[in-house]
């Protein structure tokens, strides 16, 4: 196994981690500020991808497609927040789980009703496609580098938003004491809608960016949603920094585990058995990681201590 291959796999792990971060950031913000567990976050990711595919198909512009994805997911997010979620803040997690599970059913079948049962087409624009050669002779797809950069920019932007702006102060205050900031005259319901729209837009952006190199199809959001849950459990719920670190850890573990565990097993097993049991263990690796982190720190790496 060459160094080049290892570096390339690390880049792959970073890239998948950073896309997970876009999903996890919204989830963790929404939970941190509103105390809401939103299973339908994966549907917003799917809506982003479908909107992008539809707009790219009509206009041929990838940038417009990305904007449309964020707008569509944000609008869906706002609608969901005003019509459904708003009634759930005061209830327990159980009702939230059920209601957002119901939303998944509605969004998934609704999307299939509108767009049909076959996957949609969404591709990388020409100016972003193809490989580039990195120092050391590594051939790496340009688009994936762009994804890493976009993800890091969003992470930095979110960091600034949270620490430097008035909205950010309100969000942080909301995470600490919801009643208090309402009493201080912040329009809490507007803040909630805003945070929800922001989280939704990030999920939509992730859906569109990833949709360009994957399959745009109904149900694409749920596997990512579960990974995002793992991420925020590892990182600590409510923490943007935790979401970033957790996402990178999960991305790297998933990618590197899939590549190296079978190789490792080959040292002491015959190849095809090693291949299949190595792959089996690799598919469970992130859950084992999560278990380990929680034994060490029950509220995640950066979660608030109880």
């Amino acid at each position: 196994m060459s160094t080049i291959l290892i570096i390339e796999q690390i880049l792959n792990g970073l890239q998948s981690g950073i896309m997970l971060f876009l999903m996890a950031a919204g989830l963790t913000l929404i939970f941190g500020v509103m105390g809401l567990i939103n299973l339908a976050h994966g549907s917003l990711y799917m809506i982003g991808a479908f909107a992008a595919a539809a707009v790219a198909g009509l206009t041929g512009s990838f940038v417009l497609a990305l904007i449309a994805a964020m707008a569509a997911a944000a609008i869906a997010g706002v609608l969901v927040e005003m019509l459904v979620i708003r009634r759930l803040y005061a209830t327990d997690h159980l009702d939230q789980v059920l209601a957002t599970f119901a939303l998944i059913l509605i969004f998934s079948e609704g999307t299939r009703w509108v767009f049909g049962s076959f996957p949609l087409f969404l591709d990388i624009p020409d100016y972003l496609s193809g490989p580039v050669t990195l120092p050391g002779g590594i051939q790496y797809p340009f688009y994936r580098l762009v994804l890493i950069c976009v993800g890091l920019l969003v992470a930095a932007g979110l960091g600034l938003l949270i620490t430097r702006t008035r909205i950010g102060i309100q969000i942080r205050a909301g995470e600490n004491d919801r009643e208090m900031i309402a009493a201080l005259g912040v329009d809490i319901s507007k803040l909630y809608t805003l945070v929800f729209a922001l989280g939704a837009a990030l999920a939509g952006l992730a859906g569109a960016l990833v949709g360009a190199i994957q399959s745009v199809q109904v149900g694409m959001g749920e596997p990512v949603l579960i990974l995002a849950f793992v991420v925020i459990v590892i990182g600590g719920i409510g923490s943007i920094k935790g979401a970033l670190i957790g996402a990178l850890l999960v991305g790297l573990t998933d990618t590197l585990g899939g590549v190296f565990l079978p190789q490792l097993f080959k040292l002491f097993m015959e190849p095809s058995a090693a291949q299949s049991s190595g792959s089996a263990l690799a598919s469970m690796a992130i859950y084992i990681l999560m278990g380990a982190v929680l034994i060490w720190r029950p509220t995640g790496l950066f979660g608030a201590r109880p």
Partner: peptide, 26 residues
Amino acid sequence: RTAGVYFIMITLAFGQMFYFFSISWA
């Protein structure tokens, strides 16, 4: 060891672990 939302998510993840294991258990 966890509670609240952590508990929901960690049980979900354990379920997924079994799911993936059973799929690859030839």
